[in-house]
Amino acid sequence: MSLAVQFFTYGTGDALRAVHVERPTPGPGQVRLAVRAAGVNPFDWKVLAGRMRERMPLDLPAGLGTDVAGVVDAVGDGVTEFGVGDEVFGTSLTPSFAHSALADPAKLAAKPATVSWAVAGSVAVAGGTASAVLDRLKVGDGETVLIHAAAGGVGTFAVQLAVARGARVIGTARERNHGLLRGLGAVPVTYGEGLVERVRAVAPDGVDAVLDASGRGEIPDSVELAGGPSRVLTIVAFDAADTGIQIHTGSPLGTPVLQELSDLIQKGHLHVPIARTYGLTEAPAALDASRAGQVSGKIVILPE
């Protein structure tokens, strides 16, 4: 038997229970991981709250978690990429807030010995999303990009990846996170009324592209600053499609992207701030902390 976090009704963290379940058996082309770390993403608490029921109906009880890092402890038929004992990170096929999870080797990469479990378990979803949206926005050397919620999970990755591409980054965040953003290479500005004026004070000609990871109503200001909607993209404001901006709902993620992120971490070009770690039985508090949105950096569940 193995321990896993499940919810039997939709709600907040109080709906979660750590229960004993059978360890999953890997099928052909799958591996099983002994989970060492599982990053918490906003998607997780949204699923728990029932916000994704129409797009992703579930049979309850159900589990949570997609980010994962762990040790391969079983392999299915036909798997040649990894063997038992290999340390890996990426995304899981089954919920990762658990002691055991199944994964597709094509969505994993080898975990470097110099990268902590907490960091490795936090990279795939946020880092993969950031890489994909910067590709869609065609952010390149010498351009200026505005990133909303720049101190958040996706935001911190997007800031650093854009800087690595040679872009100048302006990031919106609460004032208490401005020091973090400066440390990541961004010029911080504060949310709220007067945003356009504050951005123009540091970028008089506006910006080339905008990534909205906030969803706090910045789309009109973003379109104005970018000179039109074509290079404005949101990962949260799905009701803004009629404005002509780009809507990003998913990121095809594979080993090459994970390897790229891993290389940047090892070279010191990508820092993954860890806000706090929780044990598996503390998952309710972890999900509630993510939902409150008051942390800067990643929240991670460490099952052991």
Results as ranks from 00 to 15, higher is better:
residue 8 F to T: 15
residue 10 Y to C: 11
residue 10 Y to K: 07
residue 17 R to D: 07
residue 20 H to N: 12
residue 20 H to T: 15
residue 21 V to Q: 03
residue 22 E to Y: 07
residue 23 R to A: 15
residue 23 R to V: 11
residue 26 P to N: 01
residue 27 G to F: 05
residue 36 R to G: 14
residue 38 A to K: 05
residue 43 F to C: 10
residue 55 R to A: 15
residue 58 L to F: 13
residue 61 P to K: 00
residue 61 P to F: 01
residue 62 A to H: 05
residue 66 T to W: 12
residue 66 T to R: 11
residue 69 A to E: 01
residue 72 V to A: 09
residue 74 A to G: 11
residue 77 D to K: 02
residue 84 V to I: 13
residue 88 V to M: 06
residue 95 P to N: 11
residue 96 S to L: 07
residue 96 S to A: 12
residue 100 S to A: 15
residue 101 A to V: 13
residue 105 P to Y: 12
residue 106 A to G: 14
residue 114 T to C: 09
residue 118 A to I: 08
residue 119 V to Q: 02
residue 121 G to K: 00
residue 121 G to L: 04
residue 121 G to I: 06
residue 122 S to Q: 05
residue 123 V to M: 05
residue 128 G to H: 00
residue 142 G to Q: 11
residue 145 V to M: 07
residue 145 V to W: 08
residue 146 L to I: 09
residue 150 A to H: 02
residue 151 A to R: 05
residue 162 A to G: 10
residue 163 V to W: 01
residue 166 G to N: 03
residue 166 G to A: 11
residue 169 V to R: 08
residue 176 R to P: 08
residue 185 G to F: 10
residue 186 A to T: 13
residue 191 Y to W: 12
residue 191 Y to R: 10
residue 192 G to N: 07
residue 196 V to W: 03
residue 196 V to G: 07
residue 198 R to M: 13
residue 198 R to T: 13
residue 199 V to F: 02
residue 200 R to S: 11
residue 202 V to Q: 08
residue 203 A to L: 04
residue 204 P to V: 05
residue 210 V to F: 00
residue 228 G to M: 14
residue 233 L to E: 00
residue 235 I to C: 03
residue 238 F to T: 14
residue 242 D to L: 02
residue 252 P to V: 11
residue 257 V to L: 06
residue 274 I to S: 02
residue 278 Y to D: 06
residue 282 E to L: 15
residue 287 L to Q: 01
residue 289 A to C: 08
residue 294 Q to I: 11
residue 298 K to Y: 05
residue 301 I to E: 08
residue 302 L to P: 03
